[in-house]
């Protein structure tokens, strides 16, 4: 897992490949509203989306705010996704559990993984490890985006599941896919 510790860089062809695949599927499914809290792993994906005229990309101060903003945009007619780290799921619980789920507001949660393979920070482990079970407790399904060949079918399936059945659905940008975060 040397790649995990090296982390992605702007010129990394692997980074360009997965983030391009993810962006293409999102655009194919008319996912045009994005709320996020900045993260090294998702930075390139977000810059790609910002370059799309159809997309609105909102940098939020807290992930719960991103969930609420993307939910509001759905009410206003725009499909959306929240781009966040696993720790951000912890910050989003009440907006998901007492708003998005009971109102059946669909969205994608694009979660960059912390706390698993290659993790260097003990503070990231407990919640990172718990995220799929925490989401499952709210009835939210989670799908890992690994390996690269499965990004398109898994993400497309997650988008269909979310917007056809009116539920939030999570996909995980695993460290095996992204290389994870740089140790600084």
């Amino acid at each position: 897992m040397a790649k995990t510790h090296a982390g992605p860089t702007e010129t990394d062809p692997i980074l360009h490949r997965w983030s391009t695949l993810v962006a293409d599927v999102l655009l194919d499914h008319r996912v045009h509203m994005f709320g996020y809290v900045p993260d090294e792993v998702s930075g390139h994906l977000l810059r790609r989306l910002e370059a799309e005229p159809a997309c609105t990309v909102v940098c939020c101060t807290r992930e719960e705010e991103a969930v609420a903003t993307v939910a509001g945009a759905y009410l206003g007619g725009k499909r959306g996704a929240v781009v966040l780290q696993t720790s951000g799921i912890g910050n989003s619980m009440n907006a998901l559990g007492s708003f998005v789920v009971p109102y059946q507001i669909p969205m994608l949660l694009i979660v960059s993984e912390r706390g698993g393979l290659g993790e260097f920070n003990p503070a990231q482990v407990p919640l990172g490890h718990a995220v799929p079970r925490v989401l499952d407790a709210l009835g939210i399904q989670t799908f890992p985006l690994t390996p690269e060949a499965e990004i398109a079918p898994v993400l497309a399936g997650a988008a269909e599941l979310a917007f056809a059945t009116m539920m939030p659905v999570a996909v995980v940008l695993t460290t095996r896919l992204t290389g994870g975060k740089t140790l600084r």
Binding site: T56, E64, A68, V70, G72, N94, F99
Partner: peptide, 22 residues
């Protein structure tokens, strides 16, 4: 009217999302 029944602290952000989409 969109009535919130939960998610204290999220109301203004819901409005922001609606406003940006509409």
């Amino acid at each position: 009217n969109f009535y919130m029944w939960g998610a204290m602290g999220s109301t203004s952000s819901v409005g922001l999302g609606i406003a940006m989409a509409q």
